[in-house]
Amino acid sequence: MTGALWRIFLRDCALLVPGGRGGGSLLPLLFFLAVAMLYPFAVGPDAPLLARTGGGVVWVAALLAAILPLDRLIAPDLERGFFDQWALRGIAEEAVMAVRIVAHWLSFGPLLMLAALPAAALLGIDGSTLRTVELGLLAGTPGLAAIGVLIAALTASLRSGAALAGLLLIPLAVPILIFGAGSLSTGGESGLALTAAISLVLLAITPFAAGGAIRAARD
C-alpha cells in the first residue's frame, strides 16, 4: 500500500503544483502578490500605518489565496471515479486524504512563504516582523491546507460546492488567523505556538473527516 500511496502522491503533486500537467496554477501566488501590491494604493503612502497593518494583510491574503484551488482539489477525482478505484484496491480514503493534504500544502505553502518577502518590501514591514510573519505562515499554512482538503471533500458532491467552500472556510480558518496574525502584535512565541497547535489538530482530524465525507458521497 505504501508504494501505491507514493504513486498517488506523485500524481497529486503533478496535478496541484504550479507548472504541472494538471493546470495547477500560479493563481494563488499572483492573487497574494496582487493584494500586497494594491493595499498601499488603497490606504495611501503612510509608512507607519502600512508597517503596522501590513502583517495582518499578508495573513488575510494568504488565507484567501488558499481558497482558490479548492474546486480542483477533490471534486474532479470524485467525478472521474478515482476514489472508487482506489477503494477497490483497498487503499483507505483516509490515507489518500493525508497524502493530498501534503501535496496541496506543497502547491501553495512554500510559494506563499517565498512571496511574503516581496510582499513585505511592498508593505514596508521590518525585519523582525517579517520573521514572525514567515514563522507564522510556516505554522499556519499546513492548517490552511488541511481545512482546504476538508472543505473540498465535504462539498465535492454538491452542485454549487465551490461557492459554499469559500463560505465554509472562513469560520474554520478564523482561529489560525487570530493566533497567526495575533502573534504580530504581541511579538511573542505563544501566538506562533498556538497557530502550530491548531494546525496540528486540523492535520490530525482532516484525513478522517474528509475520508468519511468521500464515503458518504457514494450513497
Partner: peptide
C-alpha cells in the same frame, strides 16, 4: 463503470501507466 478514472489531460499511455504502476 461509466467513469473511466483516467486523467483527461494526460496522454492515454501515461494515464494507463499510473494504474499499471499502482497495481
Amino acid at each position: 463503470d461509466e467513469r473511466p478514472a483516467l486523467d483527461p489531460y494526460l496522454p492515454l499511455g501515461k494515464a494507463l501507466d499510473f494504474w499499471s504502476r499502482l497495481d
